[in-house]
Design a binder for these strands. Structure first.
Lengths: 241, 241
DNA sequence: CTTCAACTGACATAAACCTGTCAGTTGAAG
DNA sequence: CTTCAACTGACAGGTTTATGTCAGTTGAAG
């Protein structure tokens, strides 16, 4: 046979997950062995390893030796940091809200319970907590969030920004904006702002903003250009509430 | 032309996002108009609408009338519930941790800031907060999390469960388990448990659990079958720490 | 230098995915 | 009953993606 996909088998992302599980033993694994184990070619294993590395999985390959995970992935619940606990909290909230009402309710109630438990356990959480969070998504979400820190800062500090924006039709433009609000849509962020160029409110997809320059200037509320008025403007275009 | 994709153009998920933006005006839209607007066929619009509905977007189509969003999607920041704020918190944490250290730091610091701000604004957040969360992901994440509520409950209450599990090789099996720990891997959940069938610790992917039956029985810690020992067992298989 | 195994780039191909066309059905409103 | 527009299923043909093969290169260890 001269190339081509073998068969449907397992999905790629599933295989990546499996590979992590295999690597979790902390021992050395050669690409050939992994290839045999998950029934793909070595070439695919090398590609998979590249993907895992790009996703932040602490796996290292050494020539002539093999692959090994260089940092613990699964921590016992004891080692849960506050940050991880928070992350769990949030993950549950998002997962819940992202799907149907029933699940949502459950997620919310779990969140409430975590809240309730938190103040009690000031020390390390007691054994038996039973949750852990492991932050891998196999997604290249990085690019889209590149400018978020700067934008958040700008919204907070009311900084005037000069951005270059790649519109959906593929045209690039530069404009001065007053960032008013950031929205998260589960997949992409948008920034709503007063756009000096268009002299109106505009919403930009953050992942399509090419460059951001802080002009240094701070803006003050001017009639017709404030967040309050943007909200009113939004509301006016909607028959809800 | 007899079928075939028109051209690369915009990605499907981008188009779905655009459609939401268009529908946000709360007005009626016919499939034909939407099709013209985003430059695809009506058939594709109908498929897209099905996808959006499946993703939980509150869009309704009525025969002979058109499409309309039936509930407000964008809420002004004023309307941010605590739950949404929490969700934002978590989303940032996950997004941060899921990628590289730099972004992670930013996310963490934002989280810290939100924490810091929270106690101050006891009432409705002051205008100018500038964040909102909209929970759509265009993913069919539902199926994989079906059993989570029950499993969480079982871990907490130490319930013995009878599960049917579809192994990665495609074989289905039924077994009695004592659920000990749930782990979230960013894409899938796993449940680690004492498996009576295998008389050992096993880890199951939650999305591959077909059915869960609460046997009603509660289990007590028995030597060799506890969470503590599972953690020790995990540790023993790893050279870390 | 040889061996080992990670790594890379180019290419071919098969599977999966997306979309348009066609040929209907359905439900509401007039 | 007619009209409108949502909806469905099947099919065809394109695009994208995943994978295997091939032919190398590289770095470490012996």
């Amino acid at each position: 046979m001269a190339g081509g996909r073998k068969q449907t088998g397992i999905r790629r992302s599933d295989r990546l997950f499996d590979l992590i599980q295999i690597l979790r033993d902390g021992k050395l694994h050669k690409a050939r062995d992994l290839a045999e184990r998950v029934e793909v070619s070595e070439r695919t294993i090398w590609r998979d390893m590249a993907t895992l590395k790009a996703s932040g999985v602490p796996v290292e390959g050494e020539r002539g030796v093999g692959y090994m995970i260089t940092a613990p992935i699964t921590l016992p619940p004891m080692n849960l940091t506050m940050g991880e606990l928070e992350a769990l909290h949030l993950a549950v909230a998002i997962l819940g809200e992202a799907t149907d009402p029933e699940l949502s309710e459950n997620a919310q109630s779990l969140a409430a319970k975590i809240d309730a438990v938190l103040p009690e356990n000031t020390g390390p959480p007691a054994a038996g907590w039973g949750h852990a969070v492991h932050p891998f998504a196999f997604a290249d979400a990085r690019a889209g969030f590149r400018h978020m820190p700067l934008l958040r800062q700008a919204v907070r500090d009311r900084k005037v920004l000069r951005i270059t924006y790649l519109s959906l039709t593929g045209e690039s433009s530069t404009r001065l904006v007053r960032p008013l609000q950031l929205d998260y849509w589960g997949r992409v962020w948008t920034m709503s702002a007063w756009c000096e160029k268009r002299a109106g409110f505009r919403t930009f997809r953050v992942d399509r903003i090419e460059t951001v320059i802080d002009t240094g200037a701070q803006f003050k509320d001017e009639p017709g250009k404030t967040l309050t008025e943007f909200i009113a403007y939004q509301k006016a275009n909607k028959p809800f509430q």
